[in-house]
Amino acid sequence: MTVQKTILEIRDLELHFPVRQGVFKKVRGHVKAVDGINLDILKGEILGLVGESGCGKTTLGKSILQLIRPTNGNVIYNAKDETVDLCALSDAEMSAHRKNLQIVFQDPHSSLNPAFTIYGSLQDPLKKYGVKSAKERRRIIGDLLEAVNLRRDYMDRYPHEFSGGQRQRIGIARALLVDPELIVCDEAVSALDVSIQAQVLQLLLDLRAKRDLTYIFITHDLSVTEYICDRIAVMYLGKIVELADAEDLYKNTLHPYTEALLSAIPVADLDRKSNRIVLEGDVPSPMNPPTGCPFHPRCHKAIAKCKTHIPEFKISVNNDDVNHYAACHLLDET
């Protein structure tokens, strides 16, 4: 395999929301939604971001695109001709780069304006990036609707006339309009029925091949990630606990949280009766995370060290695969 170019370098990214209470709105603590993330995204790959609700996956996606400004850290973007730190840009400077970095939102019902036709919603990005003639805009939108397997004349209809799967495809078409390099798919298939979900997944894979795209695929569904992603990062309480090639993550799971997550998924296969690890309790509050390893109160393998020391996120030592990272004390024990 050829060495892939790194398109995004995320360094120590932090996003802490202040919690204000009382009459004087004094800051009483921080919700550490994204807490020191280091991640490289390679050109042309599909990176899966998985975790339970509240683990910060969506916030990470949005802070990469500067839709929510991170409080600390850098997002270095290697564009075609220049290298910029997105976190250091002003909003105006950022808008020039938004052309290359797009997002598909989770809920196709609330992300399209019900008062506009599809053409009305989709023409805005084109106007902004310099397509002056309305005829030209209609041509581009029409071509894209066809690219996502919809009919050209659908652009004069309103969002309520479409089913969920069609609306999600319109959302994908909107992200593609300005010919981006990277698309963040935030739970893009979670709201869809399985038969429609398969159509959209196939579409995403086709588009990647045709248009040389890179995806960050945020989801809570591990069987979908295994199917579509090249690499998977598992998040827990604002931190990445394990990062590996998709196949390696399933075959050679290192972190106990990933293990529990994988064992909890019901599989539509009667021959595989799983030895399920049922985690006790809920995800702890990110405002007041446990000391040491954030996962230790629910971990079935926790040792004394886990309560006091935060494990380092590093290349796993007990196998030769250099691409497998994990943050767990148990890996040092053997």
């Binding site: 089913s163 399985v194 038969s195 997944l201 295994e226 199917y227 399933y250 998924i265 599989v267």
Partner: peptide, 25 residues
Amino acid sequence: RALLDSIPVLGQGKKQAIKAIKGAT
């Protein structure tokens, strides 16, 4: 059958062929 073919099954990786059901309900 179509429903079972359209879901990715955990542990089978990328080699599995998932088939979408054409059209919508």
